[in-house]
């Protein structure tokens, strides 16, 4: 696939900096591929969770192919699996997807791509591709691009492959509780939020959000308690804090 080459966005007015595979820093390639495989592996957990929540194999696969953002995917199946409406599921997933937009903002001036290539770039703009790209900053723009594309497509391939594997596994398992899937999903969320809890402020917000959502659960319909905590985050972030 052409889009899988190391430096697909090169041709537009981009002379003298052509990067060949052999020239890409080996560390960048190694890091991209190891991140791709490790993260892709968690697609298994998503595939299983999605089936357990009542989504079909096709729907599960389409979520990984089209949505392609782990937290958002877990959110839609988590909310709808718990009986929430499609709208609250989409809202939660989309609120979690805002950060991909900001990653795009960060990556666009580095990638400088248009047309179909921008479509591909947008689709693989996620935590990991952006993270690896920014991690190569000291090695220069070419290494950043290579890290972005390699990790983006790498995760895309592994994530989709392991999604199908997890979904088929869950279909074969039957009762999700008997295999601990009911605890694996919140544990997956916990693992996603953990690295973001840098200080007391973040930990406080996390604890408060958890309590608010649990407290509201018997009162308002499924999905809404989770969205309510986003308002909490907006209110806290709005008030100036250095």
């Amino acid at each position: 696939m052409r889009t899988l080459s190391i430096n697909p966005p090169a041709p537009y007015g981009y002379i003298g900096q052509n990067v060949r595979v052999s020239k890409v820093n080996r560390a960048t390639v190694t890091q991209s591929l190891s991140v791709s495989f490790t993260v892709g592996l968690y697609g298994t957990a998503f595939g299983a969770a999605s089936i357990a929540a009542g989504f079909s194999l096709l729907q599960t696969s389409l979520l990984s192919l089209l949505t392609f953002s782990g937290a958002s995917q877990f959110a839609i199946v988590g909310v709808m699996g718990a009986g929430g409406s499609a709208i609250s599921g989409i809202a939660t997933a989309s609120l979690l997807g805002i950060r991909n937009g900001l990653y795009g903002l960060r990556m666009a001036p580095i990638l400088k791509v248009r047309g179909v290539k921008r479509v591909f770039a947008a689709q693989v703009t996620i935590d990991e591709s952006t993270g690896v790209a920014i991690g190569q900053e000291d090695l220069g723009t070419d290494a950043m691009k290579a890290g972005f594309w390699l990790t983006g497509f790498g995760v895309y391939i592994f994530w989709n492959f392991f999604t199908i594997l997890g979904a088929l596994g869950a279909q074969a398992m039957g009762n999700p509780s008997a295999w601990g899937l009911d605890a694996a999903v919140p544990a997956a969320f916990l693992g996603l939020v953990w690295p973001r809890l840098h200080g007391k402020y973040e930990k406080g917000l996390a604890a408060l959000s958890l309590l608010v959502a649990v407290a509201l659960s018997p009162v308002i319909s499924a999905g809404l308690p989770i969205i309510a905590t986003a308002l909490l985050a907006v209110a806290l972030g709005w008030k100036a804090r250095s």
């Binding site: 718990a82 959502a213 659960s217």
Partner: peptide, 23 residues
């Protein structure tokens, strides 16, 4: 706000998925 939203939503999901069932 962008840094705080995922913290709030993911924590809320942890709580709801761990200690609630069908409301």
């Amino acid at each position: 706000i962008n840094a705080l939203i995922p913290i709030a939503l993911l924590s809320a999901l942890v709580g709801v998925q761990t200690i609630t069932d069908k409301g």
